[in-house]
């Protein structure tokens, strides 16, 4: 039993349209890619797709009510929405340094969420 999947390579601006053949959960063949990086991307994107997450958490005592945050490493794609939802429940307090850990090991996925910027205490 094999199936095929059409996907666009995002590794470089060429944006090759590729067709991947999948057998029993593994990619057995890729066509349409101009270079080997396309095949590698198709392999990853089909078997274990990952995404970076950028979002915000609430912050008190800073210039703004929100602090932008970013995942230190990519997260499994199907867990991204759950992680974003979890971040909506977090509130931190200024001051925060750039790169400070905001949520350690989010949802047990082994990835930390860190501050994208610094935010000092803001006197009203």
């Amino acid at each position: 039993m094999s199936e095929t999947k059409i996907l666009n390579c995002i590794v470089c601006p060429m944006g090759c349209e590729m067709t991947a053949t999948i057998e029993g959960g593994t990619v057995t063949n890729v066509t349409g890619n101009t270079c080997p990086r396309g095949a590698k991307y198709a392999q990853e994107e089909i078997t274990a797709p990952k995404r970076m997450l950028t979002s915000t958490v609430r912050i008190t005592g800073g210039l703004l009510p929100l602090l932008p945050v970013v995942s230190k490493n990519p997260l499994p794609k199907d867990k991204v929405l759950a992680c974003a939802e979890h971040l909506r429940t977090i509130t931190v307090e200024a001051p925060i340094a750039e790169g400070a850990t905001i949520c350690e090991n989010i949802l047990g996925l082994g990835v930390d969420i860190v501050a994208s910027r610094a935010m000092d205490v803001h006197a009203e």
Binding site: T54, P68, V70, E98, S116, R117
Partner: peptide
Amino acid sequence: LTGPGYAY
């Protein structure tokens, strides 16, 4: 980097 990270 993120946008705020670049600005920083």
